[in-house]
Design a protein around this nucleic acid. Structure first.
Lengths: 156, 156
DNA sequence: TTCATATGTAATGTCTGAAGTTACATATAT
DNA sequence: ATATATGTAACTTCAGACATTACATATGAA
């Protein structure tokens, strides 16, 4: 049997999923969480945390405090933050990996192809955005609680 | 409202749109189209054409003939080829540029985040696949005919 | 003040996959 | 034979997220 390398898959933009993860941890924390602590939680680097959290700070979801006893604090309740809010806060990353070869071609055939492709992609994007808007971080946190209870049920 | 930066063409996978474009041209052509001719149509390289068309040949949509008077020929009517068929033929490229930071995390919080993300992405993907399945290349070719007539109406 | 601690950010390196390119082997009409 | 075409391997290029290094700046405590 051939061993699959599979250390990490492809180069996906994980900012949305990472920030959701972190915000829920921050809601659970007592005091501020430092970039170093957050980096450990997300298995990444403190600078990556600061860089990505900057967007969340800009829209007022979190606050950062420098120096001793500093770190990051959640400012808004999870009920008020949807997945879509986080998506926007991290800069609305490009959604699709597939797309048009040329967005403004001279060829009328390619224009017709682009029209069909764009129509399909836009519908899928609209549904995704709608889905992201329907789920709050509080709902995800609640799902976590359910999973946590279930995992504890298996321990004496 | 957040203004999207929305720059130029990034690193998108254009194989689906390119092959659709080319197949419609092949349907319009009298004889075989060479990789060189196709490359000019798509503003790319003959090797890229051969590489990508190989998938379409494997599923029987086209045939390639070597040597003098060789090239690529369409084997099936555009009515019988959907966008989804082409998508599959080019290897079902990855659809999304966003995704999970870690597909199999230990952290239960991240597992809950992943569940929500996956749910949203899967619904959007299902809709996209459905859209691709509903449109044949013949329908796109017909749309081209409309555009062509419209463009001729502006000429004496 | 002095110093350990944290964030802010620029600069640089790493990684991945489509696309582009070069080179050459192979097949086929004339 | 030769010109023409495909088939592939083996590169290079490119873009963007992520990782890392380095240093400036701010802050609380001894």
């Amino acid at each position: 049997m051939i061993e699959e390398p599979k250390g990490q898959a492809m180069q996906l933009d994980g900012r949305l999923s990472r920030m959701m993860h972190l915000l829920i941890h921050m809601d659970r924390a007592n005091g501020p969480i430092t970039s170093g602590e957050a980096a450990e939680m997300l298995h990444t680097n403190p600078v990556v945390i600061r860089r990505t959290m900057a967007g969340l700070r800009d829209v007022g979801f979190v606050r950062s405090i420098k120096g001793h006893a500093g770190g990051w604090t959640l400012l808004k309740p999870l009920e008020s933050i949807s997945m879509l809010d986080v998506y926007k806060a991290v800069g609305q990353p490009r959604i699709f990996a597939i797309g048009l070869a040329d967005p403004a071609p001279d060829c009328l055939v390619e224009q017709a192809v682009n029209a069909s492709m764009t129509s399909a992609l836009e519908k899928a994007e609209a549904l995704l955005i709608a889905q992201l808007g329907e789920v709050t971080l509080a709902a995800i946190a609640k799902d976590f609680d359910r999973r946590f209870s279930a995992s504890c049920a298996n321990s004496p």
